[in-house]
Design a protein around this nucleic acid. Structure first.
Lengths: 128, 128
DNA sequence: ACAAAAGTCAAGTCGTTACTTAACTGTTGG
DNA sequence: CCAACAGTTAAGTAACGACTTGACTTTTGT
């Protein structure tokens, strides 16, 4: 029970910031201290601490302090939750597409086994 | 070439906002006009238009205007790109874990085929 | 014991961003 | 033709979020 209310909302909000994503990338390569995370970044240590706090609150990273150094590591399961959220939207959408294609196929084969449907044309903006 | 510079940065920034995620959820169920998207939301139509613009710039949604109604739809491939970004961080991390576990297993089986490692204890903060 | 290292905390600044209202354009049904 | 509809644009406001600085705490190496 380290991150009590780690909602999808917090996760995507945390990932919405480029610096925080850079931190996540770095942590992908393995655990790191706050200072190590700060070194390649063009911001102050204090700012990095704040980012780490956000990431921790979101459930994306876990931290553990030993002596004076706080070591941060990724929580893969939270990454997975975000993946699943996206995958679900996509699945719904693609499910729709498939059903629609199926319908179309029925339609065209019933109508008059015709010329492969001209469903395209201009992809952008119609003037009038 | 509808969304010229649709970077991962734009995608995650777009997903960082709760209202925009709500729109994405809605679009998961199928295409919708701007007004339809606005109906369940507690904000003005103009605000929704702005969100749709952000989503379109990010490559997450495509829109097409016919007459006076603009119809929005998801672009599943962009969702997929975000998924992949997350999956890649996770894969790296989990790869590390596996290698580490492998090492541990070698160590323990060499050392003295011993009692299943007591690697746990307190999970949070060490005082001193 | 002391100085440097590694964070932490609290204000405060400043830019960004979500949102509103209002005026406006194009579209459609009657 | 005209009223309502669907959306767009612009300008402004208000809140939020990222970042800084500076003071402070705890830990560690010598």
């Amino acid at each position: 029970m380290h991150q009590p209310a780690a909602t999808i909302d917090h996760v995507f909000h945390a990932l919405g910031d480029a610096t925080r994503r850079a931190i996540v990338v770095q942590l992908g390569r393995g655990p790191a201290s706050v200072s190590e995370l700060a070194t390649p970044l063009p911001i102050s240590l204090a700012a990095v601490v704040q980012h780490v706090q956000v990431l921790e609150a979101s459930g994306l990273v876990a931290t553990r302090k030993q002596g004076r150094v706080r070591t941060c590591s990724l929580i893969p399961n939270t990454l997975l939750e975000a993946e699943r959220w996206l995958a679900q939207r996509r699945a719904l959408w693609e499910g729709r597409l498939e059903r629609l294609e199926a319908l179309m196929q029925v339609r065209t084969s019933i109508d008059h086994a015709a010329t492969t449907a001209p469903v395209d044309a201009a992809t952008e903006e119609e003037p009038a």
